[in-house]
Structure formats: structure tokens, C-alpha cells
């Protein structure tokens, strides 16, 4: 696997492990953008990340940040900071990582799937969507230029069991936020408290163009469920999506709007693809073979 030369991709922060994955005094190898890297942990929250060159020469030390249950690094010159997600700092939140899950597809397919409401009734049947309530109502998307993020607001969808804490169906209000090409999150209203939102993220570690690890930290309001239950719910949802993700063809993301045909419900995907196209990212993008 060759290391990508796409500086647009290289200049982003990406996760490379979850907190607790590397034992104290231990070490772990992984890969980002085709580059093998090594993570060493010398103290509780003290990680060192460096590249492992193929030829055995000494590596280059990379910047490290630990946040949102993850270890982040970058191979390039990060153009944007890690996103601010205030919910993770609220004291009564259940902040939980779910480890990481491997998915063989391009990182953008994961982001798009996370942004999509139209699949709830078919893939998360009787949980996030009901078979007889499939309609996606109009919502708004915006490119927030000050932070260079894509947002989808005023999203609503009927959900039979919106979260581990839900006992009955509800119209769930969603706000989606794409913080970078490789990270996305949602805010959804909490069943028991209309003034607050659960925050659920997906940070993607692109190992290669069609090989990813997905990290799903969440900060949620739920006094009752056990941590095992919260993780089980989130992983169950994600593994329902994973079947789809690994069976989309091509695995690379096509940006040509005539190659995959969107409809109104795909407004967030359309905005995301335009944004990717405008930033001229090449890593993990499908370039149609010349006929």
C-alpha cells in the first residue's frame, strides 16, 4: 500500500487509536493513508506517534492530541483544529467510546451513510425507522465558511426506538455536522429532556483508500442504561450499516453527479460531495475510467 501524496488529505487530523487501546508502557502499530505508524504510551495520557518507514530508517515524530476517547495525529500540516464539541465537557454526560470497527470502503461512504436518514426504515428497521414511515421531510444544508464545515439542520424523522433510553416512538430532530472529510457527528433530541441533545460522532481513520477504522465516541444523556448496553446499541446500529458500506460499488466515492443519482433526501450528501470536489481532494475518490 503506497502512502498517499494528496496533501489535502494528509493535512487533516485523523484518529489512530482509542484511549485504552495501547497499554501503559506499551506500543502499537497501525496505518494512516498507507503510512505505517507506531504509537507508544509512556504515561496515562502521554502518547508518542511516529512514522515507521519501510526501509527501516528512523521515523518522523508526528503531532498527537487525545480527545473524544481517541488518539489523533496528522501526517501533514493541519489546516484546521480538532472540532469543538461542547457536549463532551458536560459533567452529567455519559461519554463512551466504542472501540473501533474496521470497514472496507472509502471514508466518504461512511460519512455519507451517517448523514443519511432515508435508509433508517430499511437498515435500522423498527429502531431508527419504521417500514411504513419512510418519508424524509425537507431539511436545510449549509456550508459554514467561518469553520469550513457542512451542516444539515431542521432534519426530522419518525423513530420507533431512537436510543437505548427510548420507550416509545418519537419524531426525532437531528442536526448533522461534517467537521472534516473524515469526521461527522449528529445531535439528536433526547427522549427525556427536550432541551438537550445526544451527541454522537464518527471519526474515521483511513488506513488506505478503501480500508478504514471507524471510531464512534458519544456524549449522551441517559442515567439508566449500563455502559455495556449503550455500546451494544451503538455497535448494533453500526454493524447494520457496515453491510451496506462494504457492498457499495465502486467503493471509492464518485463525485460526478451523473454517476450516482441523488434525490432531495440526499441534500446533505450533495453538499458534502460538492465540498470535497471544491477542496480538490483525490484520496479515496473514484475517477471514472476514460471510455
Amino acid at each position: 500500500m503506497a502512502v498517499t501524496t494528496d496533501s489535502v488529505a494528509l493535512n487533516e487530523w485523523v484518529p489512530c487509536g482509542w484511549l485504552g487501546q495501547v497499554p501503559l508502557g506499551g506500543q502499537m502499530d497501525t496505518v494512516i493513508f498507507g503510512q505505517k505508524i507506531s504509537i507508544t504510551r509512556s504515561d496515562d495520557d502521554c502518547y508518542r506517534v511516529e512514522t515507521l518507514p519501510e526501509d527501516g530508517s528512523s521515523g518522523r515524530q508526528l503531532p498527537v492530541q487525545t480527545r473524544y476517547c481517541c488518539i489523533f495525529t496528522t501526517l501533514g500540516e493541519a489546516k484546521r483544529p480538532l472540532p469543538e464539541i461542547a457536549e463532551f465537557d458536560e459533567p452529567d454526560r455519559r461519554v463512551t467510546g466504542c472501540g473501533s470497527v474496521g470497514v472496507n470502503t472509502s471514508p466518504y461512504r461512511l460519512v455519507e451513510n451517517f448523514l443519511d436518514m432515508a435508509h433508517f426504515s430499511f437498515i435500522h428497521t423498527d429502531i431508527l425507522g419504521a417500514p411504513d414511515r419512510t418519508e424524509v421531510l425537507a431539511y436545510k444544508t449549509e456550508h459554514r465558511k467561518d469553520v469550513d464545515e457542512i451542516w444539515a439542520i431542521d432534519c426530522t424523522f419518525y423513530q420507533p426506538a431512537a436510543s437505548k433510553a427510548s420507550a416509545t416512538g418519537q419524531m426525532t430532530q437531528y442536526v448533522y455536522r461534517v467537521m472534516s472529510p473524515f469526521s461527522v457527528m449528529l445531535y439528536k433530541n433526547v427522549h427525556c429532556d427536550p432541551t438537550r441533545n445526544d451527541a454522537i460522532c464518527v471519526f474515521i481513520q483511513p488506513k488506505g483508500e478503501t480500508e478504514c477504522l471507524a471510531y464512534m465516541p458519544m456524549a449522551i444523556v441517559d442515567e439508566n442504561s449500563s455502559t455495556a448496553d449503550l455500546i451494544d446499541f451503538q455497535q448494533s446500529i453500526f454493524l447494520q450499516d457496515r453491510v451496506i458500506l462494504e457492498n457499495q460499488r465502486p467503493a471509492l466515492l464518485p463525485l460526478d453527479p451523473t454517476y450516482e443519482l441523488p434525490t432531495r433526501a440526499d441534500a446533505s450528501s450533495i453538499a458534502y460531495r460538492r465540498w470535497l470536489k471544491a477542496m480538490n481532494i483525490k484520496f479515496g475518490i473514484y475517477e471514472k475510467q476514460a471510455a
Partner: peptide, 10 residues
């Protein structure tokens, strides 16, 4: 009884 098989290795 839910077991946190991954990542908890319960």
C-alpha cells in the same frame, strides 16, 4: 445480561 465483549473484553 449484556456483556461488553468489545472493546471491554468483559
Amino acid at each position: 445480561q449484556q456483556i461488553d465483549f468489545y472493546p471491554g473484553r468483559q
